[in-house]
């Protein structure tokens, strides 16, 4: 038997509760608003937070894009896309420019987002202080008292051990000069895209039952010391082996045939678009 699911899977009561949490999150940038995370048809930790936000805000006329680590066609992205499409009938796209809502795991697309778009990020660990304090009761008090010494100490210890801040992803940020926030495991390369963004950024953690947000045109500052300024992943002299892009986030791969190290765009739809541009130019020039 196949159940005839309600529009966007959720009952209206669930949507209302999540919608109210999102409103508070927007009004208090970077603050983790608790919400009653629902049981979803995918496992917790696989994007249920993001999915619950997407399902609560999506409408019939929206166009949805879902990416997983920059890829439109990985398993997580495809199953989330299928689920939303089957319960809402919304149009799906790979092109960042065409999407109204972009749900993403661990990347912000290379193409700049616009003021009419909403990006929904999936968050495994929303609490930036969790590494230094296990108790939720205590971390909530630390946030209320603006006590972020723990997170500074974590960065300081990394400098002592490794000579630099060694956060590979999820580098903590100050939002609106008040709350320290986990930007979800996006690479440091993407942190600057949150600062004064044109698009609304919503973050959802299903397992941890938290929703938080960065409204557009809000200051987002990556934590750093004066003598150890914030740095992003550098890909100097490297370019994508497929499309040749240089100023983008690259994945490092091994060519199985030659054993050489090669680099490739992490954002697959961006890469595809660059390739299509070249192709189009070739076709046009051959006609001439």
């Amino acid at each position: 038997m196949k159940a005839n699911t309600h529009f966007a899977f959720f009952d209206e009561g669930s949507k209302k509760e999540i919608r109210r949490a999102i409103m508070k999150a927007v009004a208090i940038p970077g603050y983790q608003v608790p919400f009653a995370s629902r049981e979803m048809p995918i496992a917790r930790g696989w994007g249920t937070g993001g999915l619950q936000i997407t399902l609560s805000i999506i409408g019939k006329n929206d166009v949805l894009k879902v990416i997983d680590q920059g890829a439109d066609e990985s398993v997580n992205a495809v199953s989330i896309k299928k689920m939303v499409h089957e319960t809402t009938g919304v149009e799906l796209t790979d092109r960042t420019e065409e999407a109204d809502i972009i749900q993403s795991r661990h990347r912000i697309p290379e193409v700049a987002l616009t003021k009419d778009q909403i990006i929904v990020l999936q968050v495994p660990t929303p609490e930036p202080l969790r590494g230094v304090e296990a108790s939720e009761y205590v971390t909530k008090r630390m946030h209320s008292e603006d006590d972020y010494s723990g997170v500074w100490l974590m960065l300081f210890e990394q400098i002592m051990k490794y000579g630099k801040t060694a956060t590979t992803a999820d580098h903590p940020v100050y939002v609106n000069h008040r709350y320290v926030m986990a930007p979800s495991p996006i690479p440091r390369f993407d942190n600057s895209k949150m600062h004064q963004s044109d698009a609304l950024i919503l973050l959802g953690a299903g397992r941890e039952k938290k929703i938080y947000a960065v409204p557009p045109y809000t200051d987002v500052k990556s934590l750093a010391f004066e003598d150890y300024p914030f740095t992003v992943e550098a890909f100097e002299d490297k370019q994508c082996h497929l499309c040749g892009s240089a100023d983008v986030f690259l994945d490092e791969l091994i060519d199985h045939h030659t054993g050489e190290t090669i680099h490739q765009c992490n954002d697959t739809s961006y890469c595809m678009e660059q390739l299509n541009k070249v192709e189009k130019a070739e076709v046009e020039s051959s006609y001439a």
Binding site: M23, G59, L200, P215
Partner: peptide, 20 residues
């Protein structure tokens, strides 16, 4: 329409709330 109309209203309010 409790489902689609209120979704539209919500998105308008969300747009305005995130852009005072």
């Amino acid at each position: 329409d409790q489902v689609h109309d209120l979704q539209q209203v919500y998105r308008k309010i969300l747009h305005s709330m995130s852009r005072p």
